[in-house]
Amino acid sequence: MPELTMTVNGKQVTGSVEGRTLLVQFLRDSLALTGTHVGCDTSQCGACVVHVDGKPVKSCTMLALQADGRDVLTIEGLAKGGELHPMQEAFRENHGLQCGFCTPGMVMASVALVQENPDPSEEEVRHGLEGNLCRCTGYQNIVKSILSAAKVMRG
């Protein structure tokens, strides 16, 4: 089986995978990073979003081998030194999550959204969440969380 090496949450990891192994499978099954979720099989829901080289991607729609040599950030790597990332903190404060299943992908997408657009309007946030489905919150508190985190992240 092919070997691969990548940086995941700041640590170098190696593994051997099949050609067909998806990045999300490698993260969950080989690295036991089960924070990244699989909510669909048609690349719609976004529960599996992680950052690869700083950009959000659907880890269910990327082969593990395509991440060979790359830098991967998952939800487990977002909080630093026991401190929640401002986006995580904002989701908590604003009740931006209920069942928590879409949350890892939603948070990773939201962090990228604000990195790309540090001062988004509500409309831009809603549009920017096009790739992430949530069935619990009605999105309102997710949008609120992102707008609030953006303020903090702008400093």
Binding site: S43, G46, V49, V52, K55, P56, V57, K58, T61, M62, A109, A112, L113, E116, G128, E130, G131, N132
Partner: peptide, 9 residues
């Protein structure tokens, strides 16, 4: 096209 994540790939 698609969504932000799709557009990155």
């Amino acid at each position: 096209i698609g969504d932000p994540h799709v557009r990155n790939r």
